[in-house]
């Protein structure tokens, strides 16, 4: 019998993990930005400003536009956040410490990633605004290109485990982490993981050249929720990266969950730092690279991983 926790525990644990994760993203992102900008302020400021900024959005009016799709606008961040929570609930902290470990965990995670496109497109469609819709279509174009290599990179991790369960995938990394067995896997996964949460170099849909894209019309609590949902998805992507490629709970001396949290934090920091150190790609270039380079590399990764097992 695979472990499943009760609904109340699941809700509380996921909520706690996401609150901590989203706050960690806000602090780490500011820290990375300050390092790159060459002016790190006080630690107190680094820790307090994200909370103050959230409070500022909470007391701000939520503006609407002429003839918006009000329901869609309200649902989009909720759907995005829900998908992040769903994806995170599949990631094990330890061999017996997981909210849900279905035998098809990998498929469930992939489904959540695929649905992100619906949330982002809805968010850009609903305000009835040109730049928002522009951002929505950009995400559609990019997502179609990066979801295939994303799934192929993840799929290769299921081969040595001979299972689609995330717990089995981590357990199978005891002799060697997947980052060593499949050196192409983690880079591929990270490239497209950044794309899924449209962060840094792959922030095409909410980019500065469309004045914020899908979130151009957001103010107040709507903007806060969208920011939280994006950060939550980033946490889920980082956690699954740590589980799928960096050996999850395996590690010396420290207890398993501590390793898992440390690895997730390291992946997060790498993604956030890359966001401030890598320029945004042109969408045409990215789509071309995704189809001509990333998909063939991901296929190669699957074939080589399979051949080694044979």
């Amino acid at each position: 019998m695979r472990p499943y926790v009760g609904a109340e525990v699941a809700l509380l644990a996921t909520a706690a993990a996401l609150v901590a994760g989203v706050y960690l993203v806000a602090v780490l992102d500011r820290f990375a930005a300050a390092l790159v900008a060459g002016a790190v302020g006080s630690w107190r400021r680094l820790l307090v400003v994200p909370l103050a900024a959230a409070a500022a959005l909470l007391v701000q009016q939520r503006r609407t536009t002429e003839r918006p799709d009000g329901a869609g606008w309200a649902v989009a961040p909720a759907l995005f956040f829900g998908l992040a929570a769903f994806a995170l609930a599949l990631v094990p902290l330890g061999p017996d410490l997981v909210i849900a470990d279905p035998s098809t965990g990998f498929v469930a995670f992939s489904a959540a990633i695929a649905f992100v496109m619906i949330a982002v497109f809805l968010h850009g469609w609903s305000p009835n605004s040109p730049f928002a819709l522009h951002g929505a279509y950009r995400y559609g174009a990019a997502a179609l290109s990066f979801q295939i290599p994303f799934l192929l990179a993840m799929l290769a991790t299921a081969l040595p485990a001979e299972s689609l369960s995330i717990v089995d995938i981590v357990r199978a990394q005891e002799p060697a982490w997947n980052v060593l067995r499949q050196p192409l896997g983690l880079p591929l996964y990270l490239v497209v993981g950044v794309g899924v949460s449209f962060w840094g170099p792959l922030n095409l849909s909410d980019a500065s050249d469309v004045a914020g894209g899908t979130s151009v019309e957001d103010s107040g609590v709507a903007r806060l929720l969208w920011t939280i949902a994006r950060s939550a998805m980033l946490v889920a992507v980082a956690a699954m990266g740590a589980a799928g490629f960096l050996g999850g709970w395996w590690g010396p001396i420290l207890p398993g969950p501590a390793w898992m949290i440390a690895k997730t934090g390291a992946v997060l920091l790498a993604i956030l730092a890359a966001g401030h150190l890598l320029a945004r790609v042109r969408i045409a270039t990215f789509v071309l690279v995704a189809w001509a380079v990333l998909i063939p590399l991901a296929l190669l990764n699957v074939f080589v991983s399979g051949a080694i097992l044979l």
Partner: peptide, 16 residues
């Protein structure tokens, strides 16, 4: 140019 390329932190470094 850095701001337009999504590199706000580096833009701040240039401005500073």
């Amino acid at each position: 140019a850095l701001l337009a390329a999504g590199l706000e932190a580096l833009a701040l470094r240039a401005l500073r």
